[in-house]
Structures are given as structure tokens and as C-alpha cells.
Design a protein around this nucleic acid. Structure first.
Lengths: 140, 140
DNA sequence: ATTTACGCAACCAATAGAGTTACATATCAT
DNA sequence: ATGATATGTAACTCTATTGGTTGCGTAAAT
């Protein structure tokens, strides 16, 4: 998939849940809309469950549904639920401690990266899942 | 490497260039500070050259140096130079056109993603390479 | 009980990126 | 000119991540 496509897929899934408001939706159904395997969807749903964005029941006529109204789900919440641990990673290999720059660069960069990611989250918090659903329905 | 570690490595390289202000620095020297292979650094430098952030000369006593003062290099410029084409990718597999949500979700998400990335860039534009160097030197 | 759908482990495949090697090319110094 | 130096670039391997897939156990509704 593309870079960080989990976020887009999560929003897709949540949009379907919002669209089918109330009714539990099976991972089979979701995977058909996303065009992938049900297990991939279940993996994604687990992250959304952990963040209390969706609830899932087992058994016949079961599936997943939103744990709160779509208006209360901000894109920033979804991003937090499924994002990679670090948007801006640091290289695996440690810089040379012999170089004055290498010795300190990572310590300097960390808070700068944190600030940038905060700015990102703030922007994502401006839009809710309800907004997304509204736009989807407006496109008809 | 970690996710998007190219950005951190690029900033590391540029910080070294700023630190050695004026003097051309070889990819050999840079790779020692970053703790990697010179070719990896040269690949990175090419992206920075393309964005006119560094200039490189060949031959003996040659190497790379900043193409403008460190105060004129914003982190957002560096990010633009080395970032992945799309911060938030879309899944490779197209959603089902049979599903009303799947049919439209990507079109709705695209501008939302663009807005978030713009917010990110705006934050990164608040800091310059000179700021980074100053902080490194302050840590002594 | 039977059926349905999730949970989860295990594995394979595709992808991207770093790392590496090798060699051609440009340029400086003499 | 010539030799030394450092980049440019292609080609390859290695590794990590992620999606995709299969199989089976388990919970819950009827």
C-alpha cells in the first residue's frame, strides 16, 4: 500500500460504519468496500477498538459499529489510533559520538518533530467523521 | 531505518555543513558523522542539490557546502526536498465502486490530507537550520 | 446444537529503503 | 599532461515493514 495508507483505510472503514449508522457491519462487508481481505480489516479494527472508537460483537448478525456519534470522532483521534509510532523516525544507526553535531543532533530534532506532529494533529482535529460523511453524501 | 528517517538524516547532514561553514565537506566525512555509507549520503545530497540547498564540487579538496546561509534554510524547505511523495498515502487497491462510501471516500480525503500536510509545513517553516545549529552549540 | 463471524497465530509475498561494490568522470595540484 | 581525489551512478544484496492468505479456535445468537 502507499505510505501510511492505514490512516486512509481506517477512515474508509469508519465512514462505512457511520453510513450504516447503528447496524453492526461485518469485516466481510467492510473488506468488500475497501477491496481487501477481512483479516486485514480485523487487524485495523482492533486498533480502533483499543482507542474506543468502535465496538465489536461476535456471533451471527454481529460485527462492528461506532462507539460514539460520528460528530464526536475527530480525524486526529483516528490518526492517533492507527498512526505509526513516529511520523518522523530517526535513523536506526546512531550518529557518531565523535562528531559534535552527530552527538547532539537527535536531541535537538526530537522536540522539533514533536511540535510539527502536534501542528498536524491540530489540523486533523478540525474535521470530524460526520463532516466526512456529509461530504460523501453531498457528492451524489 | 525508522519511518521517514531521510528527513532526520538530511537535517543532520545540513547541520554538519553549517557547522563547517564555508569549507566543502566530503561525503566520506558526512557518512562518518551519520554512521552510514558515503553513497547513501550522496543520494541524499542529490535531493538537496536539486532543491538548491547545497552545492557540490567534484575533485580533490572538493565536497558539499550550503548554497545559502543557514538562517535562510527553513526546516520546511528541507522537508520538501526529501519527503516521500505522499505523507498520507492511499491504499494501492482501489475501493469498491459498488459501495457508495468506497466510491467517494478518496476524493473526500485528498483535500483533508493536503490541509494537514500544509499545517505541518507551516510549523516546520518556523525553524531554520541556524536555529538548529545554535541549539547544538548551546548544548555544549 | 448449529451457524455465524470475530480473534489470533503463522506464514508468504511485495515493497521500499539502506547498505554495499564497482567503476566512470570531473577537477585540483603539481 | 599526469596522478590523486572525490563525486555520479548503476547494480546488487539485505532487511524491515506491511499487506495478503489460510486455518482453526471461540463467542454468541437462534
Amino acid at each position: 500500500m502507499g505510505a501510511n495508507a492505514r490512516f486512509a483505510t481506517a477512515l474508509h472503514v469508519l465512514a462505512v460504519l457511520a453510513h450504516q449508522d447503528g447496524d453492526p457491519v461485518s469485516s466481510e462487508f467492510l473488506s468488500a468496500s475497501v477491496n481487501t481481505n477481512p483479516v486485514v480489516i480485523r487487524r485495523l479494527l482492533r486498533a480502533l477498538q483499543t482507542s474506543r472508537l468502535v465496538e465489536t460483537r461476535k456471533g451471527p448478525r454481529a460485527g462492528s459499529r461506532l462507539a460514539r456519534s460520528a460528530a464526536r470522532v475527530r480525524l486526529a483521534d483516528v490518526y492517533q489510533a492507527v498512526r505509526d509510532p513516529a511520523l518522523f523516525g530517526l535513523p536506526r544507526r546512531r550518529p557518531s559520538p565523535a562528531c559534535p553535531v552527530g552527538q547532539r543532533i537527535h536531541a535537538v530534532l526530537k522536540p522539533l518533530f514533536a511540535s510539527a506532529e502536534l501542528a498536524l494533529s491540530r489540523d486533523l482535529a478540525r474535521t470530524t467523521l460526520a463532516d466526512v460523511l456529509r461530504q460523501i453524501q453531498r457528492l451524489r
